[in-house]
């Protein structure tokens, strides 16, 4: 399978380990990624806060690039994925809006390229493929699969299996041998971009709720598919003195471990909260 790859700005900086691990895992699963040439920022929340048409034009440019390649496109970042998918939906349903956007772009937009999240892409390869590729099942590793907002909402457009209790990520992790726990905050918000403003206390509060919930459900780690969620959970987790913080992994990192890569290859050493120790306890740090 070949698909266009839209890393988005975060995967080239704070989310670099998601980029590293995502590429490795795709390679292992025979998914060929072709990075969109000259891709640009999707505009994220800042664009739609500012103007609806601008917020559609910025992602639409990247969709048009994928059109040119004649490929569907995957966006690992949940925020980028959300903006691309919402843009594609809105432009498909409103010809007038599409015309306005094309005028801003100065290039045609066809909407041919479909958008897939990386979770969805891996799921489409199949749990069986994941199981077969797994060299060391993550046996005994209790994880809380965290979807956040942008992979599942708006549900009318993104069409998750269940917007309140999705299972896609859980199933992939289970296929790699991990034990996803049942927990009630899978799709609660982490505070997103407010981490960078002076409302960091909101993010700290929301992150604490997520971490408490995951711990109460018996999880040893939280697993995400979004660089914003990851950096919030990884950098804004406040731990009581003496308590151990909960490591936060990208799902591709754990798949990479299961597929036999080393923690270093996957960029796991780049986390703020040490993610290597837990893996070492299980004897999974080195490549096999």
């Amino acid at each position: 399978m070949k698909i266009a790859y839209y890393p988005g700005c975060s995967l080239h900086s704070t989310g670099i380990e998601y980029d590293l691990s995502g590429r490795r895992v795709c390679q292992d699963l025979d998914i060929e990624l072709q990075e969109l040439p000259d891709w640009t920022c999707c505009g994220a929340s800042s664009a739609h806060v500012t103007d609806h048409v601008l917020a559609l034009a910025l992602p639409a440019r990247n969709l048009a690039l994928a059109d040119d390649l004649g490929l569907d496109v995957t966006a690992p970042c949940a925020a980028c994925y959300n903006r691309l998918q919402v843009t594609r939906h809105e432009l498909a349903h409103d010809p007038k809006l599409r015309q306005e956007v094309e005028e801003l772009l100065g290039r045609p937009y066809t909407g041919r390229a479909a958008v897939r999240s990386l979770v969805d892409l891996v799921a489409s390869v199949g749990e069986e493929a994941v199981r077969q590729r797994t060299r060391r099942p993550l046996r005994g590793l209790k994880v809380a699969a965290y979807y956040g907002c942008l992979l599942v909402r708006p549900a009318g457009i993104l069409q998750p299996d269940d917007p309140e209790n999705p299972q896609g990520l859980d199933r992939i992790l289970a296929a790699a041998g991990a034990e996803p726990v049942e927990w009630p905050f899978k799709t609660e918000c982490c505070g997103a971009s407010f981490a960078l403003t002076d409302h960091t206390e909101v993010v700290t509060r929301l992150v604490a709720q997520l971490v408490d919930g995951a711990q109460a459900a018996g999880a040893e780690a939280i697993v995400t598919a979004c660089p914003l969620c990851h950096s919030n959970l990884d950098m804004r987790q406040e731990t009581a003195p003496g308590a151990t913080p909960l490591p936060v992994y990208y799902f591709t990192e754990l798949l990479g471990i299961a597929f036999g890569h080393s923690a270093a290859e996957l960029g796991i050493g780049k986390h703020s909260i040490d993610g290597t120790q837990l893996l070492a306890q299980h004897g999974w740090s080195q490549a096999v």
Partner: peptide, 16 residues
């Protein structure tokens, strides 16, 4: 980071 897409983005903003 440098991207040659930057010029196009500037045009998008200018037209907007």
């Amino acid at each position: 980071e440098k991207t040659s897409g930057a010029a196009e983005v500037q045009q998008i903003f200018a037209r907007w």
